[in-house]
Amino acid sequence: MTSINGNQMQVRSERQVINLPFSRDSDWKTFLPKKLKVLKKGYLEIHCQDWVLNCRDLLYLKNFFENAGITITTIRSYISETIVSASALGFETDLILEKFTKSSSSLTKESANKNHPTGLSFHQGTLRSGEHLEVEGDVLLLGDVNPGAQISAAGNVMVWGRILGIAHAGKSGKTSAKISALQLRPVQLRIANKVARGPEEKPEEGLAEEALIVADKIVINPLKPCFQKT
């Protein structure tokens, strides 16, 4: 599944696909000019493999191809950071969830351990009352969780917005899962099999917070300035 073969390219003739080289093989910036010669004007889908690309890198890619009359439509990647940057820039994105192993000589896919899901899922838009977003893995929501709505994930729950409804992290039992949000004023928080009611008093505004299990209880702390992978 790592390479997209030529037949598929022809099926959607208006949209071309290129794969960046794997990071251990060569640098993607030196690879681009070679590839440009074979591409026609039109739309392009880029598979970024295991590159961690930030917004600046992606803008570089965008400008590079736009100068040649090619518009990037979709960014695919194994890396969630790249996908985050790409969606922030408004590209269509596709996170390939199958675990990419760096020991590439054996491209055996690691059996995804259900208690330690690694994929990150995205959702853009506010969850309104009655809606329930459920994800196997980590979830990043750009928007609010309104009262009456629920968000749950087997991994961490991250909300770029307010949690005013119910959030459940580690729904299949992962007790190290965390819930983080720009504003945490939930009706209820659940981590693994622990349940807590939301705080009665209004928290200070403008402080991102996270909820996690400390000594068998769910506690809310100010969010650490950097996101640490657990």
Partner: peptide, 12 residues
């Protein structure tokens, strides 16, 4: 407000 929120979700 809660019910309106639900309806807006459906309308969307």
């Amino acid at each position: 407000v809660r019910d309106a929120d639900r309806v807006i979700g459906l309308l969307n």
